[in-house]
Design a protein around this nucleic acid. Structure first.
Lengths: 231, 231
DNA sequence: ACCTGAACACCGTTCAAGT
DNA sequence: ACCTGAACACCGTTCAAGT
């Protein structure tokens, strides 16, 4: 699948004559680059999930040979690391959230983090097993500052940060994978029907059927922050 | 763990003569069975991780052809589901933990859950993406009862359960994957050295170098339970 | 009822080479 | 400096068959 190169020829004949590009053919494909590879990897991951990203498919989308990728990245792991961090950027709280309101700041950052991961469901499952990139480190740095400002003791700071990390990761991972087909939901629902006698309490509270994920996330986060706040 | 049956033959010669097995050859291998497949899958996963489990290797260990497995299980996913639940059994709290102490009960179950998953590090990453098996449902049922008994309002019950689930899953997943080689630790340590100026706060608190995972888990769980307890 | 080998359509990466 | 195809050693699963 080396190139569309000559494929553009005669598609629409009204294109103005392009100034001759030194190396690059007049085709649509810009040259390969780390950035292009990462952006395309994210597209592919969004479309096909973790298992859907293969070096061959990635090269196909980029209109290059498979092995050309290896000039720009070390290996597939590298692609995962780069794609992951690229998705976790944080632009900071909106101005509305006054900077004296540590709780508002923290909630905003964590909800934004979760939302971004849910928009790229593969990212949540990758994050805990990869090295931490700059974007996620920035988020932790911000968290640390806010909690300090909130009066969390230095001795409790790391525990507090990890607790919030754990909560966000657990919630997002679970939500991301339960967001499957309706068929799956129906199957689960049916499996639970005749389980009532073995698990009466969770059956009664409809634990596995409640689907207000956003509300539950926010409310539980509230409880956790209550527990973390200096009494 | 179906049987050692004929496997004992000739190990120590003082075994009494075994009655002749009808079909099975005198070889060491008991016949294939779902249980044997699952037990061997767990061994393989423990030894080689998620990517180490392949149908071919599994068949090898079992001394059978690859395709023989497919008589007993539907596919590889099925093997994962069975292996996963087999590892999550809970035998209940020890008698020491008086049953009036809801907090002690909850902490015991959650620490046992985490410990089991850490003993089989592949299990944590599988749990959120697979259907919930009977053993994990029992744990949730128990959790639900304890929290009810503790006075958590019915309207908060599901949120409380999911919060604890999230915390345990996040903590265990993170711990399981950061438990890598010493080389990795050294590399991370070095990467952080010259990051101090970009992330001063997490650098100062040594967030990424602290390795009292067990202590942090327990302490953070304490904070969360504080937040969940009716005030 | 239980087990099998051959075959198919895939993988990631090494290597030696091309421009 | 950048890109390439062929080759290697793997995958999970379908199929048609054997006992």
């Amino acid at each position: 699948m080396a190139a569309k190169r000559s494929g553009a020829r005669g598609k629409r004949s009204q294109r103005v004559s392009v100034p001759p590009q030194p190396v690059q053919e007049a085709s649509g494909e810009p040259p390969l680059s780390r950035d292009r590879i990462v952006a395309t990897a994210v597209e592919l991951l969004d479309a096909q999930g973790v298992d859907g990203l293969t070096m061959r498919r990635l090269a196909d989308r980029l209109g290059s040979g498979v092995m050309s990728l290896y000039w720009h990245v070390d290996n597939k792991e590298d692609v995962f690391d780069l794609a992951l961090d690229s998705v976790l950027e944080y632009r900071g709280p909106p101005d509305m959230v006054v900077s004296r309101d540590w709780r508002g700041e923290v909630v905003h950052m964590l909800e934004d983090w979760r939302a971004r991961m849910l928009r790229h469901p593969w990212s949540a499952s990758l994050l805990p097993r990869r090295a931490l990139g700059p974007n996620i480190l920035s988020r932790l740095e911000m968290l640390s500052k806010s909690l300090s400002r909130a009066g969390v003791a230095d001795a409790d700071l790391n525990v507090a940060i990890w607790s919030l990390w754990n909560y966000v990761m657990g919630a997002t991972l679970t939500r991301a994978s339960f967001d499957l087909s309706d068929d799956d939901r129906a199957a689960a629902r049916q499996r639970l029907e005749h389980l009532s006698e073995r698990y009466p309490t969770i059956e009664r509270s409809r634990l596995l059927l409640d689907d207000d994920w956003d509300g539950a996330f926010r409310k539980g986060l509230g409880f956790l922050l209550d527990g973390l706040s200096p009494r």
